[in-house]
């Protein structure tokens, strides 16, 4: 057992874990944040995507002990003051989700994608950047639409703020 401490959604947390505990299981089982999901064993489906120190990673392929000392954001940490994040709002407006299982990972990957590309996203770039996220329900059509809409809105918001 090792004591790990990290910041999760802005809160300092710690817990004793077996070293083999994956970050996703620490988040789900120890912190009770069950929005982060496990959909495969080979780090391809992306249902487990969270942000570690501001970058999207797969929490099913990272040990909790590896993440010690870092700052983690999960899907539960995205909405602020009860307001959906623009990416979450765009997924809803564009019907970018059906069963909802891949959705948290999709949203976290989308936020990271928009952070990296800013307003310079086109459909092909969005599709390439979803390489690590599998959805079985939507055919990606509305996910792509939602991400493009969110990117445009966030970019407009940034411009308005400048």
């Amino acid at each position: 057992m090792t004591k790990v401490s990290m910041t999760v959604n802005g809160r300092q947390v710690s817990g004793d874990v077996e070293d083999r505990t994956l970050l996703v299981h620490f988040i789900r089982d120890r912190l009770g944040l069950t929005g982060t999901h496990v959909g495969c064993d080979t780090s391809q489906c992306g249902a487990c995507v969270v942000h570690m120190d501001g970058k999207a990673i797969k929490s099913c392929s990272t040990l909790a002990v590896q993440a010690a000392g870092s700052s983690i954001t999960t899907i539960e940490g995205l909405a602020k003051d009860g307001e959906l994040h623009p990416v979450q709002a765009a997924f809803k407006a564009n019907h970018g989700l059906q069963c909802g299982f891949c959705t948290p990972g999709m949203v976290m990957a989308a936020v990271d994608m928009i952070n990296r590309h800013g307003g310079n996203l086109d459909e092909a770039t969005v599709r390439e950047n979803l390489e690590g996220n599998i959805c079985r329900c939507t055919g990606y059509h509305n996910i792509v639409k939602a991400i493009l809409a969110a990117a445009a809105e966030m970019s407009a918001g940034r411009q308005a703020a400048e």
């Binding site: 780090s43 992306g46 570690m52 999207a56 990673i57 990957a109 994608m113 390489e131 996220n133």
Partner: peptide, 9 residues
């Protein structure tokens, strides 16, 4: 290589 999340690690 891999996907954006894999490339971050």
């Amino acid at each position: 290589i891999g996907d954006p999340q894999v490339r971050h690690m």
